[in-house]
Amino acid sequence: MNTTTWIEILLIMAIAMWTQMGRRAFTTRRIFMPFIVSIIMGQQYLHGIPMSGSNLGALGLCLLVGIVFGGLLLAATTVERDASGVVYTKAGLPYLVIWVLELGSRVAFAYYARSHQQQVGHFLLSHHLSPDVIGSGFMLMTIAMLLTRVLGIVVWGKWVRTSRKAVM
């Protein structure tokens, strides 16, 4: 992994933690900020996504893994509504751990691929996968994770009852 990739991963993590940890009003900005950052940073990976043959299956698997991580994030998030109808989310340590696992999977794979280039290359060739599917797949996984979390909170926020706690 190069320095740019490290900066991207740490920036995504920092923005996610800054905007989502603790008790936060679920505003339009909080909905779109992670997507905007992911798309801006992911343009290098989302440009020319390989969509042929086995690549499509690999990308589908990455989307599915992203949905699972998004479901875990949603399960680690408390959603409440105050007396005025404002929806709040609350995320703590379990939320952080899930993010670390998701982003850590990228780091672990990158280091594995670097130290086992022949095996990874053989795997890609024997399964008719483009090397470009790796970066695209990880970016789609993150976007699917974010989308699952946000849509879950939107749906959950419409059905959650008013919290009995006063908003301070």
Rank of each mutant, 00 (worst) to 15 (best):
T5W: 13
T5H: 13
I7V: 15
E8N: 11
E8H: 12
E8T: 11
E8Y: 13
I9S: 01
L10R: 11
L10E: 10
L10C: 13
L10I: 15
L11A: 07
L11Y: 02
L11P: 08
I12C: 04
A14F: 06
A14L: 09
A14W: 07
I15E: 00
I15S: 03
M17W: 07
W18Y: 08
M21H: 04
G22N: 03
G22A: 03
G22H: 05
R23N: 04
R24N: 14
A25W: 08
F26M: 04
T28F: 10
T28A: 08
R29N: 05
R29V: 08
R29L: 10
R30V: 00
R30I: 01
I31N: 08
I31M: 14
I31A: 12
F32C: 07
F32T: 11
F32D: 09
P34Y: 11
P34N: 08
F35P: 03
F35C: 05
I36Q: 11
V37W: 06
V37I: 15
S38T: 07
S38V: 07
S38I: 07
M41R: 04
G42K: 01
G42N: 03
G42Q: 04
G42A: 05
Q43N: 14
Q44C: 12
Y45K: 07
H47M: 15
G48L: 08
I49D: 12
I49G: 13
P50T: 06
P50L: 08
P50Q: 08
M51W: 14
G53R: 13
S54D: 06
L56I: 13
G57W: 04
A58W: 15
G60F: 13
C62W: 10
C62F: 15
C62E: 06
V65G: 01
V65I: 15
I67D: 07
I67A: 12
F69S: 14
G71P: 04
G71D: 06
L74Y: 10
A76V: 10
A76C: 13
T77N: 02
T77P: 05
T78E: 01
V79N: 04
V79R: 00
V79K: 01
E80Y: 02
R81I: 04
R81N: 05
D82T: 03
A83N: 12
S84R: 02
S84V: 11
V86F: 10
V86M: 12
T89S: 06
A91Q: 14
G92D: 14
G92A: 15
L93S: 07
L93Y: 06
L93D: 01
L93V: 12
Y95Q: 05
L96H: 05
W99L: 02
V100D: 02
V100H: 02
V100R: 03
L101Q: 02
L101W: 02
L101R: 05
E102Y: 00
E102S: 04
E102W: 00
E102M: 03
L103D: 01
G104M: 03
S105V: 02
S105I: 00
R106Q: 14
V107L: 07
V107F: 00
A108G: 03
A108R: 01
F109I: 06
Y111K: 10
Y112Q: 00
R114Y: 11
Q117N: 10
Q117R: 15
Q119V: 15
V120D: 06
G121A: 04
G121C: 03
H122E: 14
H122L: 10
L124T: 10
L125M: 14
H127E: 13
H128L: 12
L129Q: 06
L129E: 13
S130W: 05
